[in-house]
């Protein structure tokens, strides 16, 4: 890398600044002298112009003939036109040196004919990879959209459904409590069941492990205990020992 920044450290820059200031002063002095010269020239021009005007006035006074006046006007017009032409020529010489002018001329001359494309400034070309790109886009887009939809569905399913526990053998109160907590209506059917304790669940629908939407219902069958109307067949106690009876 260059040592450019070293030139701006405190020690090095002082010398540089002094140099710059000296150069600026010299420039100013030079400009001052030029201005003085310029002023002197301007004054001299003014004096000359004034003298010329006086001369013309004197000529006009001397020859009041109208025709002569017309001739002098024509001459003046011719001189003016000549000056204008000179100025134009000077301007064209100046502009020839300008790279921008040269550039615009080159554009006009169509030097860039080797450049492909139509007359517009933009060069269009069919993209050779456009088919591949489209196919690639489709190959990426279709599975990703499908996967996205599936994921969203799964997410919603798990958000709005509840897993039903296995209630068989559980207490009726526990089932009702679960129903209240999960916003599920629990419908109870009661049956006599000799072998199950009163208030316990014998069966359920849907069965344990399945998922249901909230506000759905779960149907459970609750045991009412033994049926008082049921007739039981008694064993023959005469054949049993007191302990067995």
């Amino acid at each position: 890398m260059s040592d450019f920044l070293n030139g701006f450290s405190e020690q090095n820059y002082k010398k540089k600044k002094d140099k710059i200031l000296d150069e600026k002063q010299k420039k100013r002095e030079g400009q001052g002298q030029e201005e003085e010269k310029g002023d002197a020239q301007a004054r001299a021009r003014k004096v000359e112009e004034e003298e010329e005007n006086r001369g013309r006035e004197w000529e006009m006074e001397k020859s009041p003939d109208q025709e002569h006046g017309k001739e002098s006007e024509q001459e003046e017009e011719e001189e003016k036109e000549k000056e204008k032409e000179k100025k134009r020529k000077k301007a064209s010489v100046k502009d020839k040196g300008s790279p921008l002018e040269a550039y615009t001329e080159a554009v006009e001359r169509e030097e860039f004919s080797h450049v492909p494309g139509d007359a517009r400034d933009e060069v269009f070309e069919p993209d050779p990879d456009s088919r591949k790109k489209k196919l690639r886009r489709k190959l990426i887009a279709i599975p990703s959209v499908t996967a996205g939809v599936l994921l969203l569905g799964l997410l919603l399913y798990y958000m709005y459904t509840v897993e039903v526990p296995d209630f068989v053998g559980e207490r009726e109160d526990d089932v009702q409590e679960w129903g209240l907590l999960n916003d599920i209506y629990v419908r109870e059917d009661e049956v006599y069941e000799l072998e199950k304790e009163e208030g316990t669940v014998i069966s359920q629908s849907p069965s344990g492990g399945e998922r249901i939407f909230s506000e759905d219902e779960v149907q459970v069958t609750i045991s009412k205990g033994p049926d008082p109307q049921e007739e039981l067949e008694l064993p023959d106690f005469s054949e049993l020992t007191p302990r067995e009876a």
């Binding site: 300008s98 080159a106 450049v115």
Partner: peptide, 18 residues
């Protein structure tokens, strides 16, 4: 451009040196 050492021209994406 007048002050530059080298002028490069861009036209329709091609570059020429002046």
């Amino acid at each position: 451009a007048r002050e530059a050492d080298v002028v490069l021209k861009l036209y329709k994406g091609s570059m020429t040196l002046d």
